[in-house]
Simulated assay, not measured.
Amino acid sequence: MIKDRQFMAYIQEVDQHFSGWDFSHITASGRMQSQLLPWSLGSLVIPLLRNANTLLDMGTGGGEFLSSLQPLPQSVYATEGYKPNVPVAKKQLEPLGAKVVYFEDDASLPLEDHYFDLIINQHESYSVSELRRILNDRGIFITQQSGGTDCAGINEMFGVPLNEEFAHWNLETAMEELLDHRFNITLSREDFPLQRFYDIGAVVYYLKAIPWQIPDFTVERYLEPLHRIYLVIQSKGYFEVQQHRFIVKAEV
């Protein structure tokens, strides 16, 4: 039985509400910080938006990223596959003229053939054949992805292997798939920035928000590894892991 009162107080963060794709509860206060990437998805997207009439934001979460890109093109769609996020996204995006579409299968999106000038995707899965179907003959796809080794240090501390289904997911694999479907790749970069947690409550909040990192995560099940990370933070001031990010821009 762990009797450290400070530790036990921190892990109550598991009860904090999480909505959309908003980590401000732990980022705005500096409790979790990530090293800067050598690119900005938003800065790359802005000039593309100005030349697009039809736009799709894949995996919009609560619409946080898309709403930051105003003014938006004439016709805007946003897909979201996690049902609790759909009403959050609608509240955020519908006043901006965007249509939020719920979907269940990457390989069968409820969207028109050859409709979109631009598809943006931030950390969302996708089917390359569906991209080809819904992009028009001048269409552009740009995505920033989390690679298969993202935050592997967390898994090491918990004694939980990385998800085998995504372990191969990296820039090379993504480029091969796009090239196989006759895309022309005009930008590709990969990076491994550091991410730091400055208290164990931030770790708990993060793992609750991204259940694929430790799929069966509960505080009760993983109390001992959480306490080990807590002790690392008490000693060093932070717990540090390596992220895995890559970006690809591809044109039809």
Rank of each mutant, 00 (worst) to 15 (best):
A209K: 08
L118E: 05
V203L: 12
D117H: 09
L231Y: 01
R196Y: 06
L171D: 05
K208S: 00
L135G: 02
E220N: 12
N163V: 03
I210K: 12
E156N: 13
L178Q: 00
D199N: 15
G139N: 08
Y238H: 15
N121E: 04
L187N: 09
N121D: 08
W212K: 12
E240A: 05
L226V: 04
L207F: 06
T143Y: 02
S188N: 13
D150Y: 11
Y222M: 06
E165W: 08
L187P: 07
L131D: 00
I185C: 11
Y238E: 11
I120N: 04
E130D: 05
H168P: 07
Y230I: 07
H114F: 11
I154L: 15
I229W: 00
F183Y: 09
P161K: 11
D150K: 13
S125M: 06
I134A: 04
T186P: 10
V219K: 04
L179Y: 12
Q144E: 15
D180T: 09
Q144L: 06
N121L: 05
W212R: 14
I200W: 00
R138A: 03
W169H: 13
Q213A: 09
V232E: 15
Y230C: 05
P215D: 01
L194M: 08
E130G: 04
D216Y: 02
N121K: 03
E177W: 14
E156W: 01
L135I: 05
Y230N: 13
E240L: 06
Y115L: 10
D191C: 15
G148T: 03
N136P: 05
Y126K: 03
N184A: 10
P211G: 07
V128N: 01
V219W: 09
I140D: 01
E177M: 10
V128E: 10
I134N: 04
E130F: 05
L231K: 13
R196E: 12
H181S: 08
E224K: 13
L135Q: 03
Q234F: 00
L223I: 15
I140M: 03
F116T: 05
Y230T: 02
W212Y: 14
L179E: 15
G148H: 04
E164C: 06
H168F: 12
